[in-house]
């Protein structure tokens, strides 16, 4: 009904009046995500933009406002602007950090908006109306299980961590929990900031430092790409395998092609933002009933199922 109404308004108001009239009748969904500061976030931005186009086409009376922030402070500012200036009806947010963003999101909720939280949970889950998330501890656990099984429970590995954040901590803690009791030894652990160049550098140094490495847990596909080059440069491809994470197309392709250096990958798809936006939009426009939580599992990608997760058009 609302759709018909706004269409009618637009027709009556004509070209000159249209923008203002439109804006008032539309349902506004604000989307706040981190800027494309690393590969995964780049994928996130791409999927969010795709979803924005798709949803605005599908629901003409829906206006999606996408904002990106470079840090926690800016994201909090964005939320204030979305509520007071853009007057949104609902917010889809992927918080930079869980704890610092909890109160700003609470303020949005208190202003009477529908709140969808994606990926990183707030410290007070009662704020959100909907939670769509990848499962970070699960990702660490699945990675550890795969490495354990592939090494038959015994071997020396190195770990490359991401950017020091809750996400990174959860993954690494779950990983360590899972390998406890096995004979897998973590030789070294360094931050590689979810970044190819740092992955390359850190791995070069690991290779000089340790004469024998059986496996590398790179945790992220950008890091993994840097690691691959470093291992190739040292000519030690036969000695070890590398397990990344996220589901970047280049890595999925390698898994599909049965590359022995990259035998598998663990999914942590940036497409989850699109899913969250779609569920929220459907609820807003069609008043579709929703569940409170959608958890996207950390699926292990192997040559058998890789084709299903290969998106050649995505930039990530």
């Amino acid at each position: 009904m609302k759709l018909k109404l706004s269409l009618a308004t637009a027709l009556v108001a004509g070209v000159l009046m249209a923008p203002a009239a439109w804006a008032q009748d539309k349902i506004k969904m604000g989307v706040s995500i981190p800027a494309a500061t690393h590969g995964w976030a780049g994928g996130l931005n791409w999927h969010a933009q795709q979803a924005e186009k798709r949803l605005e086409q599908k629901y003409p009376n829906l206006d999606v406002i996408l904002v990106t922030a470079r840090d926690v402070g800016r994201q909090a500012n964005d939320l204030e602007d979305l509520v007071s200036v853009r007057q949104i009806d609902a917010l889809v947010i992927l918080p930079f950090e869980s704890a610092p963003m909890t109160d700003p999101v609470r303020a949005v909720k208190d202003a009477g908006k529908f709140v969808t939280v994606v990926d990183r949970g707030l410290t007070d889950p009662s704020i959100q109306d909907l939670y769509v998330a990848g499962n970070n501890p699960e990702m660490g656990k699945v990675s550890a299980q795969y490495i354990k099984q592939k090494l038959n429970g015994k071997g020396d590995i190195v770990v490359l961590r991401g950017i020091p954040t809750v996400v990174d901590n959860q993954r690494v803690e779950a990983f360590q929990e899972e390998i406890k009791g096995s004979q897998i030894k973590v030789l070294g652990m360094e931050y590689a900031n979810w970044n190819r160049d740092d992955g390359f550098k850190v791995m070069q140094d690991f290779l000089s430092r340790f004469p024998k490495i059986d496996a590398v847990w790179a945790q992220d596909d950008d890091i993994a790409l840097g690691v691959i080059e470093a291992v190739k440069q040292a000519g030690r491809e036969k000695e070890m395998f590398i397990l990344g994470g996220a589901g970047m197309k280049d890595i999925i392709k390698r898994v599909m092609d049965k590359d022995t250096l990259v035998p598998a990958d663990v999914l942590y798809p940036p497409a989850m933002i699109a899913e969250a936006m779609e569920i929220t939009a459907r609820h807003l426009v069609e008043k579709a009933p929703i569940e409170k939580q959608y958890i996207i599992e950390a699926t292990l990608v192997t040559p058998e199922n890789a084709a299903k997760y290969y998106y050649p058009d995505s930039p990530f």
Binding site: A36, G39, A41, G42, G43, N45, W46, R196, D222, D250, S314, P315, F316
Partner: peptide, 11 residues
């Protein structure tokens, strides 16, 4: 460069 790469990576 972010624009060129669509926020992703140019390979």
């Amino acid at each position: 460069v972010t624009y060129l790469a669509d926020g992703g990576t140019l390979s």
